[in-house]
Computed example of a mutant assay.
Amino acid sequence: MQHAQEPLVIFDCDGVLVDSEPLSVRVLMDAVAAHGGTLSEAEAYRRFLGRSMATMVSILDEDFGIAADAAFLEGMRRALYQRFEEELQPIEGIANALQQMPWRKCVASSSQPERIRLSLRLTGLQNFFEPHIFSATMVKRGKPEPDLFLHAAAEMNAEPSQCVVVEDSPAGILAAKRAGMRVFAFTGGSHADREEYREEVAALSPDVIFDDMDKLLHLVAESLGVDAP
């Protein structure tokens, strides 16, 4: 059993480990359009970034009049996985950072477990985390509530005060803060060049905002008050 005072670095997946957000948003926009709705790229990022499947289904139903039933979701899943197979890339520098990281680590993502593992497998990152992969499907409330991060910490026998969360979405940043954890906002994904997004992230006052994974180890070490590897 790991000691609860040992540091734990908790990674979101989409937009932090893999550069998937533009692919996901395009698939969602296409699905909404196919059902007679209109969803701009800016609105898609603002309303859906970092949210769970359950939240997405609720928003589509209540605000777009789209019943995201099993057939709708299966069509989106097939389209997304095809794009992943063809185009998905890891975030630049993340593999090297994970290779050198001396602290315990896990994934806590709003995505379905199957999608998380597919993303990590396609980008060569899965072995850095297995079996410590946690999904919003494992808790009652998804981000921006703290449930998922608290669940991951409990499963890893880590105190929230010893956890560093690496997130890219406003919902995830809020969830980490509500969990009583340090949160590092990563703004280096290809979806992060929008001024509105950067302003929203900054307004949430994360502990650190950074856009280069080559700096992650130093930043975590500095936050924990330990020597960098």
Rank of each mutant, 00 (worst) to 15 (best):
L120Y: 01
L120W: 00
R121I: 02
L122C: 00
T123E: 00
G124C: 01
N127L: 08
F129W: 00
E130G: 02
S135M: 01
T137Q: 13
M138R: 09
M138D: 11
M138S: 09
K140I: 10
K140L: 13
R141P: 05
R141S: 09
G142W: 02
K143R: 10
P144R: 04
P144G: 06
P144N: 06
E145R: 11
P146E: 02
L150V: 07
A152M: 05
A152N: 04
A153I: 06
E155K: 13
M156R: 07
M156K: 05
N157K: 13
N157C: 11
N157V: 11
A158F: 09
E159F: 14
E159T: 10
P160H: 12
P160D: 13
S161A: 14
S161R: 13
Q162R: 15
Q162N: 13
C163H: 05
V164W: 03
V164I: 12
V165S: 03
V165L: 06
V166A: 05
S169M: 03
S169P: 03
A171P: 02
G172H: 00
I173P: 01
I173A: 03
I173Q: 01
A175M: 05
A176Y: 02
K177G: 08
G180Q: 11
M181F: 13
R182V: 11
F184K: 13
F184I: 15
F184Y: 14
A185C: 11
A185R: 06
T187H: 07
G188P: 04
S190A: 13
S190C: 11
H191M: 09
H191F: 09
A192P: 08
D193N: 13
E195W: 15
E195Q: 15
E196S: 11
E196Q: 13
E199Q: 15
A202R: 15
A203R: 10
A203N: 07
L204I: 07
S205T: 14
S205W: 12
D207G: 11
I209T: 14
D211R: 14
D211E: 14
M213K: 12
M213D: 08
